[in-house]
């Protein structure tokens, strides 16, 4: 109390200061331009919405089919097509594991090469290009390409997922390497260490926990992706799911979806556990 009354006394003319403060506009200074852009965007949205044709009879049919699908999901049938389902599941799991291991192994040299602080300029640009190509193509597009090249089946899926893993892992690994504590690696360089020794002693211990975490994360992404690329012919549980839906066997499709969800959940929880342990 005492302190505040003293403050008031020393600044007796506080009423002379403005009593309002308004946050200045951050992006666009001119008020009319701000409004014009907002209105134009709104108009565009309304017009675009108007061009989407809605066929209400098809919506009604679709809803009915959707309802049958939900009923199938609620009464999943694991038994009728069990041999197909188990074959697809094993194919998917094999594809997931092999492509993750191969992808991670290949992404390590690419990732090191794409880290500005440890790689020479020329190598850096080559590795960044590999990452850019791998990341710019969506899995489904690569899968279609590999299925066309090598035919239907899990081999195309394996190649697709390995290729996609390289881009994903190498990019995140390179970023992690660029963020290391340079003091630790400087100390290793000062001992007269070679470049390989610098990577092994100065860089690897700093990025290892993240590399393990990302690999496990990629393992679950690859399992989910294996279900998606199966639809375009790259084998696995996705192919089984596609067949079930084509035959209107929604109860088998429901069973497959439940299995996919269960596997992803198991992967999610166990990878979280391993990541905490790897710290």
């Amino acid at each position: 109390m005492h302190a505040s009354s003293k403050t008031t006394n020393t600044h007796a003319d506080i009423s002379a200061y403005p009593s309002h403060w308004k946050r200045p506009p951050v992006f666009i200074q001119r008020a009319w331009l701000r409004w014009a852009i907002g209105l134009a965007a709104l108009l565009w949205f309304v017009l675009a919405l108007g061009t989407i044709e809605v066929n209400w009879t098809r919506v009604a049919e679709g809803l009915e089919r959707g309802w049958r699908f939900i009923k199938g999901f609620l009464t999943p049938d694991f038994t009728t097509r069990w041999s197909d389902i188990s074959k697809g599941l094993i194919e998917s799991l094999t594809m997931t594991l092999t492509s993750t291991v191969v992808g991670v192994l290949l992404s390590v040299p690419v990732g090191i090469g794409a880290a500005r602080n440890v790689a020479p300029k020329a190598v850096y640009y080559v590795c960044r290009s590999i990452i850019a190509v791998s990341r710019s193509l969506q899995e489904i597009i690569i899968a279609i390409l590999f299925v066309t090249m090598f035919g239907f089946g899990p081999f195309a899926g394996f190649l697709t997922l390995s290729f996609a893993t390289i881009g994903f892992m190498a990019k995140l690994l390179a970023e992690d390497i660029e963020d290391i504590d340079e003091k630790q690696s400087e100390a290793i360089r000062a001992t007269g260490a070679s470049w390989l020794q610098l990577i092994n002693y100065g860089v690897q211990p700093q990025v290892m926990p993240r590399l393990i975490g990302l690999s496990l994360y990629r393992l679950d992404i690859n399992f989910r992706e294996s279900a998606v690329i199966g639809i375009v012919g790259a084998g696995g549980i996705g192919a089984t799911l596609n067949t079930a839906i084509d035959r209107y066997e929604f109860d088998s499709a429901g069973a497959i979806l439940i299995i996919i969800i269960a596997v992803v959940m198991v992967a999610e929880y166990s990878s979280g556990y391993v990541r905490r342990w790897a710290q």
Binding site: D181, A187, I188, T191, G192, Y201, G202, P205, Q206, M208
Partner: peptide, 29 residues
């Protein structure tokens, strides 16, 4: 460089390696 030892402000040990590995890293050259 291996003939010149360097000691740093914030120790600059490789934090996730053991004490022994850090000391042995002096032999890397």
């Amino acid at each position: 460089r291996r003939r010149i030892g360097m000691i740093f402000q914030e120790y600059a040990l490789v934090e996730r390696l053991t004490v022994m590995e850090n000391v042995l890293s002096g032999r890397l050259g």
